[in-house]
Amino acid sequence: MEIYVLVKQVPDPEAIVKVKSDLELEIENKYFTSFFDEIAVEAGLKLKEKFGGRVTVLTVDNRRVDALRRGISMGADDAVQIADAALEGSDQFAIARTLSAYLKDKPFDLILTGRQAMDDDAGIVGPAVAECLGIPHVHSIIGFEVDDQKREAKVIREVENGRETLTCPLPALLTCQKGLNKPRIPLVMNVMKAMKAQIKKIDLASLGLGQSDMSPYIKIEKYVPPPKRPPVKMIKEDFPENVRVLVKLLREEAKVI
């Protein structure tokens, strides 16, 4: 099976992120692979182990390739970075157009990706790529089986109060949700391989795209930092008056009861 996994490097949960200006974030230089994408890589590798074939990890990022190296260290065969100055400031749809331009004449059986990226939580790229390629897409899967003979995937999704089982023909794009599998911890031998791996770099021109294809649908209007924690309020009254004050505050100020 030819499997492509779309991966993204996102700021580490420990990284300090600040609002630099209305349109710019300042992100500490600590990145890792979006967790849902790791689940997708794991799913791809499991299929490869069963049916043979290749797993290629693919990212659109001008600066970083952490997720590609992570993919290789987990066992992916190939890694491709799409980078181009014209991608600066692009939205998820432009990223999806770019990815599908790369994928459209590849002989893929399955495209896997995370249900959403852990930084912007948008969940757009996966479905949008499927749409651009005109292939079926199932979102947020927690289980699946592939029937290579029938060229069909049987997919399980979590829905309110239960699960639904769907089938879809291949090639298809599936986005992966927590619970699908437990991503493997890379062997250090593969980590070394990943550290040294030459990453293929591709620009927009070689995909037949240009600046005009990158115009965003979505524009960032403004970043606003989360509100500061309000000051602590000490209740000065003695028991039992303090209980009355607390209940009043919880009801009228905090509005939680």
Binding site: D12, Y31, F32, D66, R69, R70, S73, I185, P186, V188, V191, A194, M195, K196
Partner: peptide, 17 residues
């Protein structure tokens, strides 16, 4: 970049195991 990647990988293994 390779060292950073290695650190991230060990860190992740330590976090999980």
């Amino acid at each position: 970049e390779e060292h950073e990647f290695f650190r991230q990988t060990v860190r992740d293994a330590v976090n999980r195991l």
